[in-house]
């Protein structure tokens, strides 16, 4: 598929929001070419409908781009024969798809009650301090970190579990935070 084809699926003059800053500077580069397209085609054989490949397709987008822009939603819609609005409706339902760029290291700390009873808030505080992000959901000035509180990670016996991108850390205490961060480049 060419970028022009993707552009054609929405009205002229309506550049997707997320890409607004770059809409004129760079053209949208499709994700589903080459190996990523082959990967999606293989996934499609697992389901009786194209729509069922939507969550996996969005995961591929996020892996390749770090987040899911409106341009990418439009591309996914085109590939899976859905509408961009439908795809956006699904993206916004699930918390793990980033609708905005995030820091290179995305830190998620569980603070649901079982972890909360074991000191999760101290762990959050330590991450905010040592990453320099200071505020939840805000990316550090160097673009390196974003820290958020997350609901139960399904590892409550290992309070406090923390995810740094795809890496799962168990039994994190506030005094281990600096050590975890220093191992990241």
């Amino acid at each position: 598929m060419t970028p022009a084809e993707i552009g054609a699926t929405h009205a002229p003059g309506h550049a997707p929001h997320g890409d607004r800053a770059h809409a004129h500077a760079e053209e949208y580069q499709p994700v589903f070419t080459g190996a990523a397209r082959a990967e999606l085609d293989a996934l499609l054989t697992r389901y009786p409908t194209r729509m069922a490949a939507l969550l996996p397709a969005l995961w591929i987008v996020q892996r390749e781009r770090g987040w899911v822009s409106e341009g990418a939603m439009t591309e996914v819609a085109h590939v899976l024969e859905l509408t961009p609005a439908y795809v956006k409706g699904v993206v916004t339902f699930y918390t793990m798809y980033h609708q905005h760029p995030v820091g290179r290291y995305f830190v998620q700390v569980c603070t649901t009650s079982p972890c909360g009873a074991c000191g999760a808030e101290d762990v959050v505080r330590a991450f905010l301090e040592h990453t320099g992000t200071r505020e939840l959901g805000v990316t550090s000035p160097d673009g390196k970190f974003t820290v958020i509180e997350v609901e139960c990670l399904g590892a409550c016996g290992f309070a406090t579990p923390v995810m740094v991108n795809d890496e799962f850390h168990e039994s994190v205490t506030a005094d281990r935070v600096q050590d975890i961060l220093s191992k990241l480049e």
Partner: peptide
């Protein structure tokens, strides 16, 4: 089928919708 962050998808009918590519 990899979920994407939603406790409710553990409810069996929500789970089926999620596999089908729905909210």
């Amino acid at each position: 089928h990899k979920g994407a962050g939603a406790y409710i998808c553990g409810e069996e009918t929500a789970l089926m919708n999620s596999i089908e590519g729905r909210r």
